[in-house]
């Protein structure tokens, strides 16, 4: 039984912040003391400076990456959840389609990107499809596991009271699957971003509508290391925000009842 909420210790927040600050300070100090040229390794101060100097062009690319990641994640969620629900209803469908889902999962996305590029003839579509493919499988697998995790006793109870399929789905399967689904979303969120960046390295066409990966490549060709790091910082920041968002969502939705989240 829960005897009052377990309070997180005071260091839960400032310890990681302090650790990151110390790391950045050490980095800056090392760059200055050893006089490392900025085309090899720029210090964090210079990276931040470059970031603000180029905010205009970087923000545009950032927005492209964010919208592709979000769209891919949305598509992956819709497809993953719908397919998981169909699999849960029909074993035949699951047996027939599982090989395809597994092939999508195990094929290195970077190897398929050129093919998709040829087929779609659009860099944006290629990046979107790649990011979707990578994010799709964790959603499918975790939601399916969640739908199957429903308590057998409760399932019997629903049968006893002659619950319709819809009632069983709504009052039993969906709540049972929720913790699994959210765990899958945490994984899928990170993967969608990785997919969006990696695919752009391959598909990366020139033009205005390009994401952060193109900025990184560009900066690497011109050996503008500080700019490359600045773009990288934005990618990392986006990943962290996605992660924190799903952590927050999961805590909010599950705190009151599920064992995976501290109350």
């Amino acid at each position: 039984m829960a005897e009052g909420a377990r309070r997180s210790p005071r260091g839960r927040w400032w310890a990681p912040v302090l650790a990151v600050l110390l790391f950045l300070l050490g980095w800056e100090a090392a760059v200055r003391v050893f006089q490392i040229p900025h085309y090899l390794l720029p210090g964090p101060g210079l990276v931040l400076h470059t970031l603000f100097d180029n905010l205009g062009s970087l923000a545009q690319s950032w927005w492209v990456t964010i919208s592709i990641t979000a769209s891919a994640l949305l598509l992956a969620t819709v497809f993953g959840v719908v397919l998981a629900a169909l699999f849960a209803l029909s074993p035949w469908l699951e047996w027939s389609l599982t090989p395809f889902a597994v092939v999508l999962q195990v094929t290195p996305i970077i190897a398929v990107a050129p093919l998709i590029m040829i087929l779609t003839d659009s860099a944006t579509a290629t990046v979107l499809i790649c990011a979707w493919i990578v994010a799709f499988f964790p959603v499918l697998a975790s939601t399916l596991a969640g739908l199957r995790s429903a308590d057998r006793g409760l399932a019997e109870l629903f049968r006893l009271y002659r619950a319709s399929r819809w009632q069983t789905l709504r009052f039993l399967l969906v709540p049972s699957a929720l913790p699994y689904f959210l765990a899958g979303m945490k994984v899928a969120g990170g993967l969608a971003l990785i997919g969006a960046v990696v695919a752009e390295f391959t598909a990366g066409a020139a033009g205005r509508n390009t994401g952060l990966a193109s900025r990184i490549l560009e900066a690497a060709f011109r050996t503008e290391m500080p700019k490359m790091f600045a773009a990288l910082v934005l990618v990392m920041f986006t990943g962290v925000v996605i992660h924190l968002f799903f952590e927050w969502l999961s805590r909010r939705l599950l705190r009151s009842w599920h064992g995976s989240e501290p109350s």
Binding site: D151, G153, L154, E156, L157, F158, L160, Y161, R162, A163, Q167, F171, L172, P175, L178, S256, W257, H258
Partner: peptide, 27 residues
């Protein structure tokens, strides 16, 4: 028919009264 199982089999995500009214809701 009412059935009491070996386990209480309450829905952990719902409060006690919501659990108890489940048969009425299903009906």
């Amino acid at each position: 028919t009412g059935f009491v199982f070996q386990e209480p089999t309450l829905m952990p995500w719902a409060n006690v009264s919501t659990n108890v009214e489940l048969p009425l809701r299903l009906r």
